[in-house]
C-alpha cells in the first residue's frame, strides 16, 4: 500500500499537484478512512442511549476522510513540501530482522512449516546481524562481535538475574552438556563461550580496526 501510491506522485509533481507531500498524505488518510469504514461494515451503530460498537469508529473514519480531502485539496492548490526520497534497503532488512527474531524466539508452526523454539541465543544474533545490514556501512565483523557480546549480556540479565520466562536456548542444547547441569549452568556456560568468542574476535581484529571495535564493547555496558 505504502509504495504503490508514492511513485506516480513524484512524476506528477510538475503537473497539477503542487504540494506532493500533502497530496499523498490526503490519499493516505482517505485510504485509511475507507479501510476503517470497510472493516466496520455490518456492525450496528446503535442509538445514543445505547451506542453500538460501530458508532464512534464510523464517525472517526469519516472525520479522518474529511481531513484527507482537505489535505488533498491543499496539496492541489498550495505549493508545499515534496516527497522525500526513500530507499528500500533500510525497511527490508529491519523488517526481516524483526521477523527472524519473532520466528525463532519460540516454537513456530505456520501451515506445514515448523521450527523448534531456538530462544534468545539464536534470535538475538539474527536480529543484530540481519538488521545491521540495513545500512550500507555495515561491517560483518563488527556486527558479529556486537551480537556475541550483547546476546550473552541479555541472556544473563533476563534469563539468569531476572529469571524471566523468555526462552534462552533450544532444548536440544541440553543434550550437549553433562546430565547434571541445570538450565542456569548451561545458560552461564553458553554466555561465557559467546563472550569469549567476542573477546577473541575483538583482540585478533584489534590491530586492523582499533577504533571501530572499541565502541562495540562499550555498548555492552549499557
Amino acid at each position: 500500500m505504502s509504495h504503490s501510491h508514492e511513485r506516480p506522485k513524484e512524476q506528477e509533481r510538475r503537473g497539477f499537484v503542487r504540494g506532493a507531500q500533502d497530496f499523498a498524505g490526503g490519499i493516505f488518510l482517505l485510504l485509511l478512512a475507507a479501510l476503517g469504514l470497510w472493516l466496520m461494515r455490518g456492525l450496528p451503530q446503535g442509538r445514543l442511549s445505547a451506542m453500538g460498537p460501530a458508532m464512534l469508529p464510523d464517525w472517526l473514519s469519516i472525520g479522518v476522510g474529511l481531513c484527507g480531502v482537505a489535505l488533498l485539496v491543499n496539496g492541489l492548490l498550495k505549493h508545499g513540501a515534496a516527497l522525500e526520497r526513500w530507499s528500500l534497503r533500510g525497511p527490508v532488512f529491519i523488517i526481516l530482522a524483526i521477523l527472524a527474531f519473532a520466528a525463532t524466539i519460540r516454537p513456530l508452526s505456520l501451515g506445514g512449516f515448523s521450527l523448534p523454539g531456538l530462544g534468545m541465543i539464536v534470535a538475538g544474533p539474527l536480529a543484530i546481524l540481519i538488521g545491521g545490514c540495513a545500512t550500507p556501512e555495515a561491517r560483518l565483523r563488527e556486527l558479529v562481535i556486537l551480537s556475541l557480546s550483547l546476546t550473552p549480556f541479555c541472556m544473563l540479565l533476563f534469563g539468569d538475574m531476572l529469571n524471566l520466562p523468555i526462552p534462552v536456548f533450544p532444548q536440544a542444547l541440553t543434550g550437549l552438556f553433562p546430565a547434571g547441569w541445570s538450565q542456569k549452568d548451561i545458560l552461564r556456560a553458553c554466555s561465557a563461550i559467546m563472550a569469549a568468542a567476542a573477546l577473541i574476535m575483538f583482540l585478533t581484529g584489534r590491530r586492523r580496526h582499533t577504533t571501530k571495535v572499541d565502541v562495540a564493547i562499550e555498548t555492552e555496558q549499557g
Binding site: I94, A97, I98, F101, A102, A103, I105, R106, L108, M120, A123, G124, A127, I128, L129, G131, G132, A134, T135, E137, A138, R139, E142, L143, L146, S147, L150, T151, C154, F158, L164, P165, I166, K212, V215, A216, E218, T219, G222
Partner: peptide
C-alpha cells in the same frame, strides 16, 4: 552511549526492542 556509531547503535536498539516487547506478553 550516544558516541557509539549509529551503524552499531541501531542493531542493538533493534534487538533490545525485540527482546523487550517479547518479554512483556511472550507473544511473537
Amino acid at each position: 552511549l550516544l558516541k557509539v556509531p549509529y551503524r552499531l547503535m541501531f542493531p542493538a536498539i533493534l534487538m533490545f526492542c525485540c527482546i523487550g516487547i517479547y518479554s512483556i506478553n511472550s507473544l511473537p
